[in-house]
Nucleic acid binder design. Sequence first.
DNA 1: GTTCCCCGCGCG
DNA 2: AAAGCGCGCGGGGAAC
Length: 584
Amino acid sequence: MTAPGPSATPPAWCVLGHGEGGRTRLTSLGPDGAVLGQDEADPAALPALVGRWEAEHSPRWVWSDAASWYPGLLAAGVTLERCHDLRLIHRILAHSELVRDAGALRAASDWDTPLEPREPERDAGATLFDLDAAARRPGAVPSDHAETLAELARQRTAIDAAHDPARLRLLVAAESAGALIAAELQRAGIPWDVAEHDRILTAALGPRPSPGTPPALMVEAAAEVRTALDDPLVPLDSHPRLLRALHRAGIEVSSTSQWELQGHDHPAIAPLLRYKKMSRLLTANGWTWLDEWVHEGRYRPVYVPGGVVTGRWASSGGGALQIPRQLRPALRADPGWRLVSADVSQLEPRVLAAMSADPAMIAAGAGKDLYSGIVEAGIVATRQEAKIGVLGALYGGTTGDSGRVVPRLRRTFPAAMALVDGAAATGERGGTVTTWLGRSSPAVEESWTAAQRSANQPEASAGQQEAARRSARDRGRFTRNFVVQGTAAEWALSWMAALRLRLARFTPVPVEHAAGPSGPVFSRRAHLAFFLHDEVIVHAPAGQAEAAAAAIRESAQAAGRLLFPGSPIDFPLDLEISERSAQK
DNA sequence: GTTCCCCGCGCG
DNA sequence: AAAGCGCGCGGGGAAC
């Protein structure tokens, strides 16, 4: 290694990529991108090398993607502060309206690849040696050293020449921090109380049955339904056949959905609704789920940062983002530890208020509850009306209660409504909209534009015209919501990124019996354990729980200032410290 | 036998 | 009651 001397420029970037003979190459770059030094290591020696550079220089690590590189480093005990995830950033830059010339990026289409879903690490001990194979698995973006450097250069050029480089840099940093956090979350896992989960299942379904047989309470409910329908064989799990059986019994429903069933008065309805509830719990989060996803007291879901077009995270396997409220009590802190749970009150409306700088809407949220603020301002009578109206504004609701309330909101919050109405109009025309930090909505397909054009010809059929209008409205609702949902995702990433750095400064505490997959662990630090769009859970030693709560609050304020400097908008949290997650 | 789509419902 | 946005998943059943 050409080690920088005391007077040399410290490395701002360290680029990792695959070199010759299965070795990993490391190139350090100065702030201007000039090469400062080179080194290389076998996969087994990589964590030590990376750890040394992190300790000495804390550079921004550049790699094809964190999902390929970081789990192996984490398994070896190496935690990094900052990175630049080329795969995630490529997808943003190649489509961002803020980028003036995305030609070079678009041409490098190998980089425009979503990550293949990957099973969680069942045996993290093997990861150290699988590091190389993991980064080279099929479907992955390029990870060889030269191409990694070339892509970094393309991205830097695009950012530097962008319309608003400062905003784009915030987005790049937030998205990349998210990539680190996702890997760390998966490694840490959610502390999960298997016995409590089993208690909840047993209370709802009856004791765990032998494989292949339904639990007792489901059998009971099914029998009640069949008696009430006077049809001893009706299959309750087949929608088409159940629907026909309901019709035979004189229950005129067009689907078997619970909201439609609820409207009918028949002795079969109540047990059927109970059966459907139980069936859902059993198939989605029953004992099979427990066996598959919870090991050694940890649920380790697979998070997919940037998995949603708007920039929200998705998940792959285990349904991490759909844990039913009913099972929340199964989230339980380790002995002597606490769960610090926080969610943002009305994140999306507040984000809209800040983006549009709508003074009336900011004022409505200035207390604690934005919906109550709207009631107190005399715009609607009830909190429920306010909520339905605001959601209608964000989602493009036109019918029912929301259709009645939205026009009132349009008069009261003209700036906020102009922002979402404008986004909808752009989408209806086939245009692109962009979030606060620069993530743009996908461009329309040519076939969409063609269909719109031909529907505007005089010879177009009425059906064609109606289909085109509906499709335009659908797209308008999507772009209307995109700017708000996407900016809210940016806020949430910024919140977590700030929180992660604060938690990294907490003092680790001794842990007696924790043997992680990588071997014995003798001390552990407060860490993020769960993230769900506008909610985080931190797992912290009891003595540090208050400090963790303060860190969560400070981080929320920091995220608000970072995205909306000078704005009076605030982002109040509902925060709770407990041993066990509340059901709410 | 495998693949794909729809339905319904969980989450924000 | 849903409605209006964004998802993932399991099960059934049609299509291949």
